[in-house]
């Protein structure tokens, strides 16, 4: 595992596109220490690796959707929550490739 440092946490947060102040990173660092202790207990469970990772609560299934054109939103509905709109499109500062 990556060692958890204040720098790493800041980098993690920035990767998620937000920032926190120094004090908050400190709290987070402590939170990680607690979590690691708790996760250590899990690591010690004897048959932890005898099972596969479980995503779905019980054996369940999804179904395929028929390929039929459904309803669309009106332009007004699509764009009414966006803050900057031009020519029926959402406007952003120029995205540099």
């Amino acid at each position: 595992m990556k060692e958890v440092t204040l720098e790493l946490l800041k980098q993690c947060a920035n990767n998620l596109l937000f920032d926190m102040d120094q004090e908050q990173y400190q709290t987070l660092l402590e939170e990680f220490a607690t979590l690691f202790k708790q996760m250590e207990l899990i690591g010690k469970i004897e048959d932890i690796d005898s099972v596969t990772p479980l995503t779905f609560p019980y054996p369940c299934q999804s179904y395929l959707r028929e390929d039929i054109e459904g309803e669309t939103l009106t332009l007004e509905e699509t764009l009414k929550n966006a803050k900057e709109v031009e020519d029926n499109q959402i406007k952003l500062p120029k995205v540099v490739l």
Partner: peptide
């Protein structure tokens, strides 16, 4: 492996 998947395994157990 040590965090997310381990937690999913614990969930399974």
């Amino acid at each position: 492996e040590e965090l997310f998947l381990r937690a999913q395994k614990a969930r399974h157990l």
